[in-house]
Each structure stands twice: as structure tokens, then as C-alpha cells.
Design a protein around this nucleic acid. Structure first.
Lengths: 130, 130
DNA sequence: GTTGACCCTCCCATGGTGGGAGGCCCCATC
DNA sequence: GATGGGGCCTCCCACCATGGGAGGGTCAAC
């Protein structure tokens, strides 16, 4: 099948399929006319990638996950370690964003939010407080 | 003062100061030799920007915040609205990241993590389950 | 008068994705 | 057999914010 059909079957855009090929994450055979040609296995790989992206794995992790997937003698411990490292990174980012949101919400709670100019948010940014 | 001193006094890198100027967020006067010249007010502006960045405001929001800051007749409601919108965006992202982390952690909890290849994480990515 | 620290501009990279231009290919329909 | 439309190709640009570095000018101190 051509790239368009592989895209719609896998849920990965044609644009991204070409990009993944350009960074060596996947490969494709070419027809005589230069068109990329894909089979069911390629679609399975693309779906794997999409699911991993849904779990926010960075592409470099996905590269390793693909290798582990295709390694019949893999140790599940390697997969788990990769996953837990990623979970830790996600949680660190989530926690950090939430902390920032909390402190800004705290500031906003003390802002009247009316027509007057006085505003603790501006004061904080200005450095009057912090 | 030159850009280097403005950078160290404000906590904004010289690189970023030049960038902020290039996108029209700030401006700078030039000396005869072409060097940018900054005064205390400029440093205050840079600090304002840095504090806003610490609160993860995007630069386009900061552009508006700077205008509000310098508008003596501003309505604090405008500032508050901007801030609360931003808080909502931050919380949405934090929640989404945490949700992804949770589901991946759940998968990892069911993975033995030993030397055997069987791994529910890989199964999920492969689409065997989902 | 040289050295070293600072400044200048311009380009490139990150990470993942989308948009679009310009051009080729293939099939169907007239 | 010609034409039209949709799909495919490559290559460049954009986002967002930041950092790195090359190649070259400037200034101060020694």
C-alpha cells in the first residue's frame, strides 16, 4: 500500500511517517516510481509508534522500545526500567507545572479583578514582593 | 551598562535579551560603537519578564502583561483574566501528563521486570490489549 | 601593542508536528 | 489521446524558548 493508506490505517500522518523514516526510526521499500510501499508489518510498527507517542514516549525511547519489541530474548526488566524512567520524567513535569499553577492561582486569588489597577500579580512580577 | 551586566543583574541571559529585542518585546538604545546600552528601568523590565517566565507565561502573554504593567489605568481584572487563563492551561497540561503517567505506571506495575520477555507494556504498545 | 574579556550578527540545534510550494505519477473519464 | 484530480515526491518554513558557536569588531589594562 502507499503512504496514504498506511497513514489512515495506522493513525500516523503521512508527514510523520516520512519524518520517522528520515530520522531512521522506520524504513520503507520503494516502488519503481519512487513511491514508498508498506505492508501489514509496517502498519503494525506505525501503530506501535503511535501508541508509544500516546504515552508520551520521546522518539529516542521509542527507538529503544522498537528494538526491545523485536528482540525475542528481551528482558522485560529493560522495558520496565525505560517505562518507569519515563513515568518519573512525566510526573516531575506534571508536578512542576502544577506547582507553578498553584502559586499563580494563589496570587490571582488575592487580586480583586475589578476596574482598579492594583494587582498583586503585577506586583509580584515587578518584584515588589518577591 | 552593557548587555552582560544587564544580563547578570536581571537573571536573563544576554542571548535571550537580544532575542526579546528581535521579537519586539523590549528595545535598547545603542552606543556609538554599536553596543546595546541599558539603564535601571531596562533591568526592571527584564526582571519582570524573568518573573513572568518563572510563572511559565508564554512570551505573547508577557507582551500583554508588560503593556498592562505600564498602563497606569489598567483594570486588574484584565491581569487576573490573563493569569487565570494561563493557570487553566497549566493545569490542563499537568493533569494530562499525570494521566498519561498514571496509565503507564499502571502498566508497569503489571510487568514482572525480570529476565523473561513477557511484558504487558510491550503488549499494550503492540495493540494486543488496547 | 598585545592579550583577554566583551560585544556584534548570523546560522544551527533542540522535539514533534504541521503547512505549503513546485513538480511528478497514475487512473478515470470524456 | 488529452485532461483533470488526487496522491505522491522533495525541500523549506513555522511553531516555542533557549543555547551553542563561528567569525569578526571593540575596549581596557598591562
Amino acid at each position: 500500500m502507499n503512504i496514504g493508506e498506511a497513514a489512515s490505517r495506522s493513525g500516523v500522518s503521512a508527514k510523520m511517517i516520512r519524518h520517522y523514516e528520515s530520522i531512521g526510526l522506520i524504513s520503507a521499500t520503494r516502488r519503481a516510481n519512487g513511491y514508498r510501499s508498506y505492508g501489514p508489518k509496517d502498519v503494525a510498527v506505525l501503530r506501535f509508534i503511535r501508541h508509544a507517542r500516546d504515552l508520551a514516549f520521546p522518539l529516542e525511547d521509542i527507538r529503544k522500545l522498537l528494538a526491545l519489541w523485536q528482540d525475542r530474548s528481551r528482558a522485560s526488566g529493560d522495558v520496565k526500567r525505560l517505562a518507569l524512567d519515563h513515568v518519573a520524567a512525566l510526573e516531575a513535569k506534571a508536578t512542576s507545572l502544577q506547582a507553578v499553577a498553584d502559586s499563580l492561582r494563589h496570587l490571582a486569588n488575592h487580586c480583586q479583578g475589578d476596574d482598579r489597577p492594583d494587582c498583586p500579580i503585577i506586583d509580584e512580577l515587578e518584584g515588589k514582593i518577591a
